[in-house]
Design a protein around this nucleic acid. Sequence first.
DNA 1: CGAAAGAACTTGTCAATGACTAGATTCCGC
DNA 2: GCGGAATCTAGTCATTGACAAGTTCTTTCG
Lengths: 197, 197
Amino acid sequence: MSPSNSTSTDRRTYHHGDLRRAVLSAALDVIAAEGPGALSLRDLARRAGVSHAAPAHHFKDRTGLLTAIAAEGFGLLADALREAPGLREAGVRYVRFAREHPAHFQVMFSPELLRAEDLELTTARALAGDALTQAVTTVDPGERGPDARLAGMAAWSLAHGYATLLLGHNLDHQLGKEDPEDTFRALTAMLFHSAAD
Amino acid sequence: MSPSNSTSTDRRTYHHGDLRRAVLSAALDVIAAEGPGALSLRDLARRAGVSHAAPAHHFKDRTGLLTAIAAEGFGLLADALREAPGLREAGVRYVRFAREHPAHFQVMFSPELLRAEDLELTTARALAGDALTQAVTTVDPGERGPDARLAGMAAWSLAHGYATLLLGHNLDHQLGKEDPEDTFRALTAMLFHSAAD
DNA sequence: CGAAAGAACTTGTCAATGACTAGATTCCGC
DNA sequence: GCGGAATCTAGTCATTGACAAGTTCTTTCG
């Protein structure tokens, strides 16, 4: 439909074609490389080849853009966690999600950057929360112990901490050339030292 | 020595007296309340009752201020972890540190905000790392399993994830009115289900 | 004691940014 | 093909970080 490439900077048409996606995509690149603090709406506009105020039409403001990213992230996480074959594998997928979508992950857990009451955000987050809870409650009660709530917090804390430290390059030294996912499996095997899945 | 209060906004003397501490302190308040992104050197200067360029004399720039905060944080963490009576208690202290110094904690693990090569930062971080390693290696090998490196990553991930989720208010719902530290103890008791300390 | 050296702070300036407003262009339903 | 809505442009303002140059206080040392 539009002759313009969604991320190219030259454009003959008045309408971009898919500016929303182009801005989101550029934002994810910037965040992954330099963090959310380096985000500049005007810079994103330049990358997309549009005027400095164009992004605001799609996201309202900087907070709106970040909120959209977080909501998208929770949706992706819910998809990744859905129908995980066991708690262990859910943890692995949580870590994999963080590695594949580092920008989303970072923004999702930076509440001070987000519009907390945003409907898309809260519903997406609730979905992801359900998927997590599902992964905990469906596991064999004999394996996870009597308290599902405690087990859920433990699993989430472990996966979240590992993912966070990984993204912050705090485990580089101890991991060496190992595959982070394999190491995470080994780690959970050690903790739940008779884990079935 | 100086008649001026270190955080008051009115000041008769040309010299503030302890501007460095005043700026650091105000910065910690802002970060704890609104995150590092809300930090403004000019705002901190206003709070301290000095001119807009005064803070730069002590910290060079925004990154310098955040780097100083991170370095201080790693120092405080090393102190908190030093001589912890066992791995479990070290974890509890890690979580306690995050709750008592949320701004430090947040900045310490945001590498994109810091001057990575800063000497004070790297040495302080190394000290804290030593304290953590110490806590892992001194624990009874029969309790932690054969692989100290894996055990260390597991313990750090668990404590770090729990602390992070706690600060992001992601555990509020499941914790209710419980004491977060007690819950963390219960959580570790469940995982290392015969933990001695 | 006093002067030089340096630390602590001020004032002025510039480019960049977020947010807002008003207006131009294109798209779409009828 | 017409009218309203969506998309994008252009202009503006207050705020900020960074830097340069000057002022005031403190300390050192001859």
